[in-house]
Design a protein around this nucleic acid. Sequence first.
DNA 1: CGATTGTGCAGCCAATCGGTTGCAAATATA
DNA 2: TATATTTGCAACCGATTGGCTGCACAATCG
Lengths: 106, 106
Amino acid sequence: MRRDIFQAIADPTRRAIITLIALQAMTPNAIADNFQTTRQSVSKHLRILTECELVKQEQHGREIYYSLEIEKMKEIDKWLDQFRQIWKTKFNQLDNVLSTLKKQKK
Amino acid sequence: MRRDIFQAIADPTRRAIITLIALQAMTPNAIADNFQTTRQSVSKHLRILTECELVKQEQHGREIYYSLEIEKMKEIDKWLDQFRQIWKTKFNQLDNVLSTLKKQKK
DNA sequence: CGATTGTGCAGCCAATCGGTTGCAAATATA
DNA sequence: TATATTTGCAACCGATTGGCTGCACAATCG
């Protein structure tokens, strides 16, 4: 079982669940209402998200509220950092080209 | 075939390939040298990355140089935006708590 | 108490995944 | 021209995936 955050967000239903519970905690039944799938399949997705610590649970009686562990999302952001450096460089290169063109116009 | 960018970065080997060719274009053989797998399997990964437009090819004779389509990576960054808003809010909430504590101390 | 509701888990299944081997085509080299 | 190199693609294979059904268990309701 691989179960890392990148594998977790690979599935479109899981990404939708993440977005759904990002702002407010929800029960599995309430989450499942938003998808054309069974409650059990949503439950399976929640288990996967729990296993890689992307969601947390809070039990209220027989209801379980799931919400996003927002800090964990920063791991993706962290991985993207290496490419942000490149974006920046490319932008500067483009900037240089533009200012060269500007100077030639003068 | 799903073939979106999130499914593409789900595999650790593909993430490593992306990092490898982010700064300089490389041939499939050169890429495969960095992994304990066959050239054909790397070729398969490159095909998947090509299909979701994450890499571009440049042919030089019989050699094909693959490099990262860095702009495409921004799609992940874009998806993360919705969570950045939440990080910001959470930070402000923490900030409020801290300043309340500060006031109480006074 | 019995019935209903909310939930997780096991087992099944078709589809997909990531790897392999074997090949064919194109280019470079002798 | 014959040979070697670089590559992509097809076929196969075991493992994993994501969905389903059926169940068990606990909490709530009548």
